[in-house]
Simulated scan of single mutants.
Amino acid sequence: MVKVTLGSQTLAESGATIVVEGNHYFPPSSINKDLFTDSATHTTCGWKGEASYYNVKAEDGGIVTDAAWYYPKTITDRAKPVEGYIAFYKNKVQITE
């Protein structure tokens, strides 16, 4: 089971993550959607496609910007397994395996 926390809040928890390039990608059903808001940030990966980002609400009312990302529509068959799955920046949240 892999768990992502921010302070005492659980952002995601799953035994069914997919690891790509050292990052755990979580199934969409495993995140606490109440703590996420859409970000305007987008980046592009040459083999996964365009990534969208989420901001995360902190316990103190603050916002951690661009703490997580996902690929709404992947562009290669190799990336298809993580389509719609959410990954987190290790320097913005705590990830325990």
Rank of each mutant, 00 (worst) to 15 (best):
L6E: 05
P27H: 14
P81G: 11
A68Q: 00
G49N: 14
D77C: 01
R78Y: 02
V4S: 06
Y71C: 11
V93F: 07
I95G: 04
Y89Q: 01
S52P: 00
E13Y: 01
S29A: 15
Y70L: 13
N55C: 05
W69C: 05
P27I: 15
Q9I: 04
D34G: 13
I75W: 00
G15Y: 01
I18L: 06
G7F: 01
M1G: 12
S39N: 10
I31T: 14
P28R: 13
Y25M: 09
Y54T: 06
K33E: 13
D77L: 02
D66E: 12
K57W: 03
T44A: 12
A51G: 10
W69T: 10
K57R: 14
A87L: 02
S52L: 05
R78G: 04
G61V: 06
P28I: 13
T43M: 03
S52K: 14
V2N: 08
T41M: 10
S14G: 08
F88M: 05
F36G: 10
F36P: 05
Y53C: 14
V19L: 05
L35M: 05
S8P: 00
A87E: 04
E59L: 10
P81C: 06
S8A: 12
I86Y: 10
R78Q: 08
K73W: 00
I75H: 00
D66R: 09
Y89A: 03
K3T: 15
L6M: 06
T5M: 03
T37K: 00
W69R: 03
N91S: 12
H42K: 15
T5L: 02
G22W: 04
I75Q: 04
A58D: 14
N23Q: 12
K92Y: 11
T43C: 09
V93M: 08
K80D: 13
I86T: 12
T43N: 09
A79D: 04
A68D: 06
C45E: 10
H24W: 01
L11C: 07
I75D: 08
S39T: 08
Y53S: 15
P81L: 06
A12V: 09
E13Q: 14
N55W: 07
S39W: 02
T96M: 11
D38E: 10
A67K: 01
A40M: 04
I18P: 00
G15E: 15
F26W: 05
T17A: 09
E21L: 02
S14T: 09
G84P: 07
F36W: 03
V56N: 12
N91R: 15
E21Y: 04
V56S: 11
V56F: 07
G49L: 08
W47Y: 14
A51D: 07
V20R: 05
V19H: 02
E59H: 07
N55P: 03
L35A: 13
G7R: 05
S14Q: 03
T44H: 11
N32P: 03
S29E: 15
V82A: 03
